[in-house]
Structures are given as C-alpha cells and as structure tokens.
Design a protein around this nucleic acid. Sequence first.
DNA 1: ATTTAATGGTGTAATTTTCACACACTATCT
DNA 2: AGATAGTGTGTGAAAATTACACCATTAAAT
Lengths: 231, 231
Amino acid sequence: MEVKLPTFESVFSIDCVIFGFEAGELKILLIERNEEPFKDWLALPGYIVEQDESIDDAAERILYELTGLRDMHMQQFHTFGEVNRHPQGRVITVAYYALIRINGQKDLRPITQYARKAFWHPVNELPKLAFDHSEIFQTAFNKIRRRLNYQPIAFELLPEKFTLTQLQSLYEAVLSKKLDKRNFRKKMLSYGFLKELDEKQKGVSYRAAKLYKFDRRKYAKIFHNDLNLDK
Amino acid sequence: MEVKLPTFESVFSIDCVIFGFEAGELKILLIERNEEPFKDWLALPGYIVEQDESIDDAAERILYELTGLRDMHMQQFHTFGEVNRHPQGRVITVAYYALIRINGQKDLRPITQYARKAFWHPVNELPKLAFDHSEIFQTAFNKIRRRLNYQPIAFELLPEKFTLTQLQSLYEAVLSKKLDKRNFRKKMLSYGFLKELDEKQKGVSYRAAKLYKFDRRKYAKIFHNDLNLDK
DNA sequence: ATTTAATGGTGTAATTTTCACACACTATCT
DNA sequence: AGATAGTGTGTGAAAATTACACCATTAAAT
C-alpha cells in the first residue's frame, strides 16, 4: 500500500472503561501497571493500536491481553487528543466502555506482562489513576448515567435472570439516588420487554423473588422502530 | 521530547460536519476537492492533525483553512477507525460537528488550495461524498436529532433574534415531522429561557411576529443544575 | 377602498404520565 | 412461635402531553 500522506510520528491508543455490578455496587476494571511511565500506578486497561486492525478490533484485543476478557462488545464514547496527555510523546486515545456481568467472568488474567494484575474496583472512592484516566473514567460514567434512561444497558450488567429488586438497586447505584419501589416496578413492567419466568430466586433466607429476563426482541420491536427520536 | 513509544506510521485527521439553517432547510457545508484522491468530488471539510496541536484546536484550524470560518465551537462526536477508510494508507479520523448561523457568515473562502470552493448544501438530496463521508454525515445527523430534544442546540442555528415560527420550522426540518403550533409555543415559552423582545420582525408583507432571544443564563440555571440526568 | 394572501397569535378539554405514599405477605432462621 | 428481611401490591393528586379551529394583523394587489 503506497503511503503518500503527510505524516508525523503519532501514536494511537485505546483505553477501556469496563463497568460491572456486584454486591449492590458499580465497579470498574483497573490494572496495575508494570511499566514506566506510571509504573505501579492503577490505570484503565489500554494500549496501542496496530496498523492492520480497526479501532474496534483493537479495543477487543487490548482488553483481552490486559485482562483476559473477550468479546465484550465495547462502545466508543470519546477521543482524547490533548497535546501533553502522555509524558513520552503525542498520543491520541480513543476511549471505549462496556458493561458486563462480573459473575460470569471471574478469572481476570492479564496475558501480557504489561499489566501486573487486573481487578474490580468500586467507582466510589476511586484512587488517582495514571495519565488522564480519571478524566476518561468520569466522562464514561457521565455517558452511561445519561444512557441508562434511554437505552437498555442495565441488563448487560445483571445476570441473565434477575429480580426486579436487583434491577432497581442497579439503577439506584448508577444514578446515586433512591427510587420508589412501586413506581419503579410499575414502570419497568409497563414497557413490556421484561419476561417473567416461572422460576424464583434460590438460597435466600427470606421470601424468594420472581426472576425476570430481558427480552431483546420485544425491546427492539417497541423502541427501535421509531429510531428512539422522541425520548 | 523523547519518544520511546512503539509506533507505526499513522495519520490522524479531522472531518467537520457543519450544519446551518437557511430558507427553512437544514444544510451542511461541503467542499469541492482539488486534490487526489477523490479529486473534484464533494467532501466534508477535513484535513490532517499537526503534531503540536490538540484535536480540538486542529478542528478549528482545519475548518478555517478550508472554508474561512473561525471560532465555530465544534463538538467531537465520533472517531472513525476502519482499516481501509482511506485509499492511500491508514487514517483515523475524529469527526466534529457544529451548528452555525449561516446568515452571519456569508463569505466562504478556502484559504488553502486543497479545497476549490466551499458551499452550503441541503441535507436532503445529498450526493455521494468522498471517502466514507456519507456515513460520517449520517452519524452526525443522527446525533443532532437526538440532541435537539435535550440540549439547546437549535438556537445556534438561528439568528440571535428569531420568531417562534422560525424556531418551530427549524425543529420540523431537523426532526422531519410537523409539530402543532399551539403546543409548540406553549411548551417553548413554559421553559422560561426565551426572552421576549420589544422588537418585531421587519420587511415581511404580513403581520410582523414578535422577536425572541435565547437566554443562556436562564437556561443554565434551569437545567445545568441537576446535570440533565433526568431528561 | 376593498380584497387577498400569508402568517401571527391564542384556550380548553381529554388523556396520559408521573409522583407520593403504607401495609400485608412469605420464607427462613432461631 | 416469634423475629427478620425482603416481596409484592393500588390509589388519588398533580403535571405534562395531545388534539383541535378561529380571528387578527399586515402589505401587496386590484
């Protein structure tokens, strides 16, 4: 492939903000860096894009190499391009987020030596992160808080079968405010995209709650038709 | 500055989708290319980011060089990173949009030879554009249609003083649907961020309408407080 | 002076959505 | 048998949304 374009030595990278929900708390995935700069700091999983991969593919690969997680279906949300973001040169970073079920994915094992380990950390009380990663996290968090209200992202964080109380506590954690139980249930059920199962919760020492599933087909029928323009 | 990062020859560029509103139609700014590839094609204004400028600064500079427009306050909205977007090599592009008042900015004069000319074109009936610019446009258009409902972007497209009918026809053009006049007015005025002026429209051959101004301070007071999370 | 064409400007009732609010039921544990 | 902890349900008030039609004003044309 002939390259005739004016260029400068530039580096593209990807950073990933991976949200999970566990024990009533919203968490994100962090790595402990094993390389300079910011050696030993905590950081978002991120690395450099290769020449022959799209940025979407790069995001999947990089997340896998740093955490062992695959096929996370990430969404690009912002690109950070200030001149002095990186102490060693000009780096422009496309940031992605994903929402995943923590319980389904227990083994976090970095494949490269670049990360010493990967682990979940609650989004409240986050420490200072390497580079401008605190800002990147904050931008991601704002995005998903907005999107929670008009996109079915909550269900990506919950197990496939969940109770309405779990769903509500997820909303409360993300929005950081209390919601009314009766109104919440009424509204969620009124949408018609939750499928009530015959099963109940197990292993709880109190009355077991009904389990529900998110019905993606019905959701698409109800909302994707009118392109979501109205709400 | 020492550069120790692994790199590959990569190119960053910016493309701009500049919306304007004129004669009841939504338009965007296109250039006629004067260079290969896609010589003589219509394209979005766009060019390559320099090493010592942030991507936001680059967007302002590039738009200026290709169209003569300055200080447009653009918003980044998506980054396009497929491997084969550009026939001459790997190019990753951060796309920006802006909404501007066409009438205030009549003189479109490309500064560089790279664009033969720049002009406004209605968004309906757009021709095929160079590169993947049709897709970039479509993504931008979808974004602003969503945002129209929860951000005060309409006022950036109108002259400083405008009538409610102009405002409504802008909404109708962007959303491509008819709205009810009474309900529209009632709702807009109920927000409380439109300031009624003592002036009236001039030079029309029918009853002159009252002019209004968008009051940014009041808007901020009303909406920015609660971070816009609810709507 | 009158007519015409074009747009400005206004109110009400029905419907839907949102919000606030409290208690009885069920399963388990001791 | 009682304590505990969470499940599950309904109603009324207030607010927001929707549907809907006519007269007023102005400049231009006759």
